[in-house]
Design a protein around this nucleic acid. Structure first.
Lengths: 314, 314
DNA sequence: GATGCTTACGATACCCGTAAAGATA
DNA sequence: TATCTTTACGGGTATCGTAAGCATC
């Protein structure tokens, strides 16, 4: 048994049991891949893959159990390398943060600036993606840290921490009839066409939830992935915008007016997530502490070790 | 990085940093060992061992962190082999149970007989040892299951389950003055020389505890590792014996009399322990279930996965 | 017929063990 | 001096990639 065999087993599953692709993905020959699998199966005395003739179709029962262990071992192998990196060059290396448009554009610039200043030699890669893709990036180890409002909890492989809280707000054009109202209500909002985030993005679920609870069916005419698109179409008069309040800049968005709606929609919590068992460099912990001063390295390490999933602070 | 290097790192620590011994332990040359260590350090770019000239003295900080991961990886490597074994020969293989004299002699015969009957092809090895040695056997993977009354809890690497409860009892020769008393007390016991277990064995701590709480200093004239020795010297008139009640057989021990002392000493709990992260064969789970019908495979697996240490049932 | 897996085979790189030299106690 | 580690070197083995042969779709 060697590491190449383990890598091949893992990659075979990832590449849908196409050994040619496995060879490509691991920069080796397909014949070698085939032989390695055979050798491993011979050594263990168990068939790991379900075959139909020569084609591989899936994992056998022992294969499935083995895969779990293999994943952990390869993660550990990677951890060893990270660990060495960490000690070889304490303030040098690579940090990949996967996040959504909203966080990248409005919440993180401050953090990134501070981090860059503190660790000029660290190559910081910001990876913008959807919340679901983000979870995948964390799981595969392509990203070290994930930051989003959606999809992060309910993932047993991840540990997440609250980063900050925020509310949705409404933006309208100047002279919009809603500006006349003294207190904005869900009912009056529902009278107008609405422009907001796509499902699964930036707290959209909380919006739907609020309308549904009030027995209202809003007329959502455009769903966007980011606030810039929303604002653009609100300015065009297509409808009323609902977006994260921090996405509104009174200086730059001078054609629009922000209406406070803290009383209408539930609070949102943006979270920071890391993969359980993934070794983090010291500067990665520092990045999270820059996000929220409560997130000390010791606090995070603790939560990583206890396998519980109730990781909220306070 | 390969497995041989990892094995060498682990073995180097185990052999107190003597590379010659490492070579012997791993059945390879010492020069190879030396080179492997150097190669690994070069690859990782970090010194793993503290050196004084050419001699290795200990682990560096990165070495310590690395060792933790290495231990886990090698355990996983072993787990993979066990897993394969399990599927290749479901009812065939090897099970090593480490336990103390008391359990081996009085509690386990019933279980072992049942197990042998159910799994005739499994090679069951009973490994008699002291509670502390037993913990070591579990940690190094030399034993799959450990059974003892002492030393098993307070080991974060182990998960333990209650097996059965028992009490100490007093044995005396026929016609002993204590037989005249209506209700036995600690005070009257302390009037006689006492023969009981060695410290760290078979609930001895509970005995000391009970005497200390009563402000008594018992005159312990002989400490033994097992009940047979205790009974022998009680018969010789050396003193009063205190032993586990199940170690008394009225049929065979006809020169002695058992006095019930449930009210004098705290209850003891004998526990079954397994190492966290150690893959167990299906028949190993079955062995534990034979010990206590509450210990279903699913129950044990659950406790192994949650890292909490409060593993008592109900 | 196109894609995908296995087997065969030669080149290469890696690993091991012996032996000699150097360091440490 | 005895023990221990490193380095050098030769032999053996395992791994890799090309290419050819088959099976599957």
């Amino acid at each position: 048994m060697n590491f190449q065999q383990l890598r091949i087993v893992r990659e075979t599953v990832r590449q849908n049991f196409n050994l040619t692709e496995v060879g490509n993905a691991l920069f080796t020959s397909q014949s070698g891949v085939s032989k390695h699998i055979k050798d491993l199966e011979d050594e263990l005395g168990v068939e790991l893959f379900v075959r139909k003739g020569k084609r591989l179709l899936g994992l056998t029962d022992p294969g499935k159990e083995l895969l779990e262990i293999v994943e952990r071992m390869l993660l550990d192998a990677k951890n060893i390398k990270q660990l060495a990196e960490q000690f070889a060059n304490r303030d040098q290396g690579m940090l990949t943060v996967a996040t959504t448009h909203t966080q990248a554009r409005y919440a993180l610039p401050r953090v990134v600036a501070g981090f860059k200043h503190e660790f000029p030699k660290v190559h910081l890669a910001l990876h913008q993606s959807s919340p679901h893709e983000l979870v995948h990036l964390l799981k595969t180890g392509e990203a070290d840290i994930g930051i989003a409002t959606e999809a992060l909890d309910d993932e047993p492989e991840l540990v997440c921490f609250p980063y900050y809280e925020w509310h949705h707000a409404v933006v309208v054009t100047q002279n919009h009839p809603l500006l006349e109202q003294s207190a904005l209500t869900l009912e009056s909002l529902a009278d107008y066409p609405i422009i907001t985030y796509h499902e699964g993005f930036t707290g959209r679920a909380k919006l739907d939830q609020a309308f549904a609870a009030a027995g209202l069916v809003p007329d959502i005419v455009l769903t966007a992935l980011d606030a810039d698109v929303i604002k653009t179409y609100v300015e065009l008069g297509l409808g009323v915008g609902i977006l994260a309040s921090m996405a509104f800049d009174p200086r730059k968005d001078d054609g629009l007016v922000l209406l406070d709606t803290q009383h209408l929609f539930p609070q949102n919590v943006t979270r920071i997530a890391v993969r359980r068992g993934h070794y983090l460099r010291a500067f990665a912990y520092r990045f999270m502490e820059l996000c929220s001063s409560q997130l000390k390295e010791s606090v995070i390490r603790n939560s990583l070790n206890s396998r519980s999933r109730t990781d909220d602070l306070d």
